[in-house]
Amino acid sequence: MSAPVVGYVGADVPVELITAAGLRPLRLAGKPREDSTAGDRYLGRGVDPAARSILTRILAGDYGPLEAIVVSRDCEASLRLFYALRELHRVEPELGLPPVRLVDVLHLPHHTTTRYVHAKLAQLREWLGRWRPIGDGDLAAAITAHDDLRRSLARLAVLRRANRLSGTRFLEVVAATTTLPVGEATTLVDRLLTEERPEVAGTRLFLTGSSHDSPEVYETLERNGFLVVGEDHDWGELLFARTCAAPTELALAERYQHNGPSAPRASIRQRAAHTAAAARGCGAEVLLSYARVHDDAPPWDFPEQRAATGLPAVLAERQPYGELTAEALAALVPAGAAA
């Protein structure tokens, strides 16, 4: 019998706790270019279209039966989504929505922040305990399993940097691991690591800015002569870059506290330093900052990211969800040629 599924939104959700409760974490992704009228009705069209798409899909039952939903406060759109789900669960019970829980992870480098995050994770642990109480052994096993998956994904990232895996395929694999039980996800990645594959080529591009929960933008870039060799959003390498120092609740809190830096929650200086180091590490030749419509954080980061990397760089602002406009691509192509 398969485990009940808990949907979650945002990379700040400690999936280890869901696994430790005997539940299966499923990261909820939107679908670009599909009608989002239902989500627009409750969130309004001024919210990030990815969040509106997720709400539309929840209301339509696209994710299958969900035992609960956990939302992280990783950005304003996620917070708006949480409030909408909580109210719909309360005032429209006929919709049959599951209970929803918010987890608030702060990313400041202070001991007081660690205590705050630890307390929030302990509260989530207690809440998930209504399905199965989470013992320390359960939690330790779940942390170890998810860290094993992160290490396997890190090895897959090395293959991509060695031109043995396209950015599109890499993104698809990472997304697939967020839909499977952790053991099956690790088996999937480990199997891919052993496969022989031809070399891929293209102008080596590092992608920053908005997150990508679907591969369309990557596909567009790679059809036009680029190879996405790295990114700093939380559906890519930022998702698995950090493991836990120990299989304990405190170490788990520290892992999520110090994970990042993401565009909505980190300073401009932190983002620039991280982007520059990551771009160097994957041998990038071009920097693209992709800013989705209603995602206002990336353009603020871009000037310092461009200066810190020293790469030919393009800012693509107000991009449709899951698309790269012809104008943005036209601006990027000369940068690729210069590289």
Rank of each mutant, 00 (worst) to 15 (best):
D301Q: 12
A140L: 08
G61V: 13
A253S: 11
T179W: 11
D190V: 05
L238G: 05
L193Q: 09
E67Q: 15
E216V: 00
A119S: 11
A338G: 04
D295P: 05
L102D: 06
L124R: 11
L149F: 04
H274A: 05
S211L: 12
V71E: 10
M1E: 10
P65C: 01
A307I: 07
R45T: 15
S152D: 07
P261Y: 01
R27E: 15
S2F: 05
G230E: 09
E304Q: 14
I54G: 09
A277L: 08
G183C: 03
T208F: 07
A51S: 15
G64P: 03
A50F: 15
R318K: 10
L121D: 10
A201P: 01
A141L: 14
S289T: 15
E304G: 00
D104R: 14
P133Y: 09
C244M: 02
E126T: 14
D48F: 13
S152N: 03
P49V: 11
Y256R: 03
A20C: 10
L180T: 03
H233R: 08
E126M: 01
R318I: 00
T56H: 06
G260P: 03
L97F: 05
H110M: 10
G236N: 13
R125K: 15
A142I: 11
Y8H: 15
L108M: 05
